[in-house]
Amino acid sequence: MEQVRASGRRGRDETEEERADRRFGDLLQELRVAQTGVQILFGFLLTVAFQPRFTELSGTDRTIYTVTVLLGAATTGVLVGPVSFHRMLTGRRLKPQTVAWASRLTMLGLVLLLCTMGSALLLILRVVVDDAHAAWLVGGMVAWFVLCWFVLPVWTRAKERAKELPTEGPERRPEH
């Protein structure tokens, strides 16, 4: 539970190591969700090339497929990266640094997942509907992912930071 410390700062009363342990545990839970989705998507993508209709795809669709598979592989790699970081640095008293790098890799993984999803949707929708509609539908879905995954969290963080700013004091004059 968040509390106000004697220093007046909000937050938990925990050491740097305790905070790193908590943040890493939270991050691992988040990665489990992302990794499961990526693994299912990547597994599906790998089977597409072995379907009888794959040979009927246009050159453009084959290029989109190739890019999508590479993006899926890159996404898988970067989302597994925090596990490797943890395993290779365990016991070296580098937990805060491990958490920082794992967090960066996870954000990169989300960006790559966004690209993978957009590319996979483009491939599928080009087969299902005409090219013009596919582009608009994919654009709409990518915008939706950006809103859900990036805009709303950043907006919420900014909104909460604004609440924490002093309303009066030398930095801000009261409004009349």
Rank of each mutant, 00 (worst) to 15 (best):
L94V: 07
Y65L: 05
E171P: 04
R93V: 08
T60M: 13
P166G: 13
R104H: 10
V142Q: 04
R10F: 15
R157I: 09
I40C: 12
M1L: 07
M117R: 00
S103F: 08
M1E: 08
P96D: 03
E164T: 08
F85L: 12
R104M: 07
A74R: 01
L105M: 09
L165D: 15
T75Y: 00
V111Y: 05
E56F: 15
A143L: 12
V80S: 04
G25S: 14
E17D: 12
A102N: 05
I124T: 13
G37K: 01
R92I: 08
V83P: 10
K159H: 10
V33H: 03
L46G: 06
L113D: 13
F44R: 05
F42R: 03
A135Q: 12
R32K: 13
V69N: 02
H86F: 14
I124R: 03
G43Y: 03
T60F: 14
V128H: 02
V138N: 02
R23C: 06
R19S: 12
Q97R: 15
V38G: 01
W136C: 11
I124Y: 00
V142Y: 06
E175F: 01
V146A: 09
P153V: 11
G109F: 00
V142H: 08
E17H: 11
R126D: 15
L121R: 03
I64H: 01
L46R: 01
R172T: 11
E164C: 06
L114A: 13
L137E: 09
V142P: 14
L41H: 02
A102M: 10
F50Q: 11
V48P: 03
A73Y: 00
L147I: 10
Q35S: 02
G118F: 00
E17P: 02
T156F: 14
G139I: 03
E164D: 15
R161I: 15
L41I: 10
R126M: 14
D21Y: 03
G25R: 06
L123G: 04
T76C: 11
L108N: 05
M1Y: 09
F85D: 00
T55E: 05
L113P: 05
G140C: 14
G59E: 14
L70T: 08
I124H: 02
G11N: 10
R53V: 10
V78T: 14
R5Y: 07
V129S: 04
P174F: 08
G37R: 00
V78H: 01
L45A: 08
A6T: 07
L94I: 04
W149E: 02
